[in-house]
Design a protein around this nucleic acid. Structure first.
Lengths: 203, 203
DNA sequence: TGTTACCCTGTCCATCGGTCCAATACCGAT
DNA sequence: ATCGGTATTGGACCGATGGACAGGGTAACA
């Protein structure tokens, strides 16, 4: 469970060593070579292709946090989208870094406090809008059919939907068949498109 | 620093007491009366006006987590938008509940794992960073793989893609396999979800 | 009581989808 | 000229999917 700080060496942050005595400073290349599952890896967003590094290491099971000199919401979502679980200022005090580390090691998300409101608020508005569009097409479905349709629209397999709704896979198929018939689609792929993106349903 | 579980009493979850020995079960009214700054409050989403309760208590400094019998992205955003910091299944095992508690008390966000991708993705789209991210994901594909990926993202079957591109269905499978590998997705549904929010600008 | 709608389950079967094993050919780079 | 990447196929395997057919149960309603 190594604690790795990825940087180019041009600016070593003493706060990092204060926060984690056992921290190791490594180059991006060393990080790619050494980081494994469970390692806590900290990446500064001034590195070249930092998001690629983040997604690479996070896919390998490492726990990523991104540190930025100028935190902003877009970069925050780039970080989270790439698989990072933490996003904070690069000069955060040691106590804060330890707090971030505590959160991310427990499967949590830690975002720079000033951005948290936009993160949640903005996301909620879009989801609300999408929900309105979905409501129309879902209106003609029964409650259970809607649950199945929405689960399928998330990319789940029939087995996964059955597991989530605590019913058999066969029942999922039955509901799904009804959904296809009512919405006039042929398969789950077109259902996903219909629910996730309304405007082009000329199929 | 009380640990309060808000419920109507009709279904007391023993896991809650397993997770937190000092937990107190309270009604929504009791919660409004007793909860104060620093208290950890757990609310089930089957309560009437649960989101109002959540926003009320969170404004008073309590640390809110929402527990749902059927977690879904819309409800997750409602919860986060109302000020909750945690969102999990109501039947989560005690270890998971303690993990959530650990995260939220350290200023973190904890979201039911299956919803995390959507939470991040939905919020990212809000800020208009979608097109850039999509171009980045398509950039690592060859010209032919992009054509196949985009056709599949329209909901076409392998056979239909083969007809459009004037190649064999077998070849479509080959390209598609490469696309899955490079983009780190498991099947065509994940691919659709990854690409369905852009199109129109890559051809 | 019969009807209707919804929810749940089962079996059978044809097709589709994804991955494994190959192979051939083109083209640029070393 | 050999090597690596890309594009193109083939076959085979097996799980996932969707449709057809055939039921079970509950609840509301005339």
């Amino acid at each position: 469970m190594a604690q790795l700080f990825v940087c180019q060496g041009h600016d070593v942050i003493p706060r990092w060593r204060e926060a984690f005595a056992e921290a190791r400073l490594v180059t991006p290349e060393q990080a790619r070579a050494q980081a494994g599952a469970g390692d806590r890896v900290w990446v500064t967003s001034d590195l070249d292709r930092w998001s690629g590094l983040v997604s690479n290491l996070s896919r390998r099971g490492a726990i990523l946090s991104v540190l930025s000199y100028a935190p902003n919401s877009l970069e925050a979502f780039q970080a989270l989208g790439a698989g990072a679980r933490g996003y904070a200022h690069v000069l955060s005090p040691p106590e804060l870094l330890r707090q971030v580390e505590m959160v991310v090691t427990h499967q949590g998300i830690w975002v720079w406090p000033e951005l948290l409101a936009q993160v949640v608020g903005g996301a909620f508005r879009t989801l609300g809008g999408e929900a309105m569009l979905q409501k129309e097409t879902l209106a003609c479905l029964t409650e259970r059919e809607q649950a199945v349709a929405l689960a399928v629209a998330e990319g789940l397999s029939n087995k996964a939907v059955a597991n989530r709704l605590a019913i058999t896979e066969r029942t999922v198929k039955a509901h799904l068949g009804a959904v296809f018939r009512k919405l006039g689609v042929r398969d789950r792929m077109q259902l996903i498109l219909k629910l996730s993106h309304q405007e082009q349903d000329a199929l």
